[in-house]
Every structure is written in structure tokens, then in C-alpha cells.
Amino acid sequence: MSYIFQIFPQILDGLGITFGTFAVTLVLSLPLGALVSLGRVSKNKVVSGIFGIYTWVLRGTPLLLQMFLIFFGLPAIGIQLFGRMRLPYVYLAFVLNYAAYFAEIFRSGIQSVEKGQIEAARLLGFTGWQMNVKIVWPQVIKKTLPAIGNEIITLVKDTSLVYALGLAEIFKIARSISTRDVTIAPYIVVGIIYLVITAVITKLLNMAEKKVYYEE
């Protein structure tokens, strides 16, 4: 037990990167996903096609691969976006990847809003923007919240992938301690930390779902 108390603070040191990756990804990929979903449902075939390819590529290849391609690939072709910093590349890969998943979820939500409601709104004189803000998106959020929640939980666990770029998030620290002390205890600690985080997020998501719930 005392061993666990001893390694616990070391593992917690990595929470900054774990939470940072989680928060930045969530805050940026949700609005980006919303924009991509609007592109996907666009009547303009070129626009919907381009965004279709975007979601196909980003959902069709592993996040780890995308992270490597962005981190090693961009500088290799002379694009130096963030200098020697590693975290911004991670954020970029995560945001682009998660936006694609969110976009597909939002798209299904948009398409599930009754066409008649859109026609009713149009006849009442609403502009496209007003229709989106007042009528379509409140329903999209309600309909897609469970699926979005699922992705958010996956995102918590996916943050462990950043260890592949040598960033010291909780999983990487646990791995180092495990190798150093030849024990699996750090993995158990880190597993419990993930469980606690996902439990809190699940609770928050349940509250949000209750708040936007209405029968149809």
C-alpha cells in the first residue's frame, strides 16, 4: 500500500498532459465536427464530397498513424507548424480525428430532424441560420448526446496514445515505473485513474442528457 502512495504522485504528474489533450480535443473538435457535418449534408455535391473524403480518411486510418504522419510527416515535407514542440502536433491530430467522428454523429442527427419541421420553419420566414440555431441543432444535440458521450469516453482513453510520441502522460509514467520496479502495480493505479475520470464524465453526461431530454 505504501508503495502505491509512493508512486501515486509520480503518476499524477502526467495528468496535466492527459487532461490537456482531452480538453483541447473536446473544445476544438466539437465545433469543427459541427462544421464538417454541415458540409456533409450540403446540397452542393462538391462540398459534401470533400467533407465525405475527410471523414473517410480520418475515420478509416488509426489515430496513432495520423499522429505520426502529422508529427514526422509535416516537418519532413518542410511544414514547420509548431517548431520543436510536440504537444501541438498531438492536439492537431486528435482534433482532426475526433472532428471526423463527431461530424458523422452530428450528420445522422441533422438528417433525423423531420423534413416537415424545416419546411414549416421556412414558411414561417426563418433564415437558414435561425433555423439551425433555433430548430435543428437543439434537436441534434438531444438526439446525438448519447453517441457523443460514447466518443468522449473513448477520447479519455485515447489520450494514452500520446505516449508514443514520448510525452509523459499518466500511462507513459506508469509504464516507466513498471519497468523500473518490475511490478504491474502502476498499471492498476493508472487503470483506476481512468475509471475515476470516466465515472465523473459519465455522471456529467447523464445529467446533460436529462437536461435536454423531452419525449417525441
Binding site: A120, K134, P138, Y214, E216
Partner: peptide, 25 residues
């Protein structure tokens, strides 16, 4: 226009359904 299947906005109260166009349009 009053549609056959009404097409009320399901996420709003009756009052909000009726005031929405008055306020926004």
C-alpha cells in the same frame, strides 16, 4: 400553412412554438 402532421417543434413548449416566429422573424 398548417401541415397535415402539424410539424410542431418538439423541443419547445407550446408558447415557444407560437412566439418563435414573432420574436425572431
Amino acid at each position: 400553412m398548417v401541415f397535415q402532421s402539424y410539424h410542431l417543434f418538439p423541443h419547445m413548449t407550446v408558447l415557444d412554438n407560437v412566439t418563435l416566429a414573432l420574436i425572431n422573424v
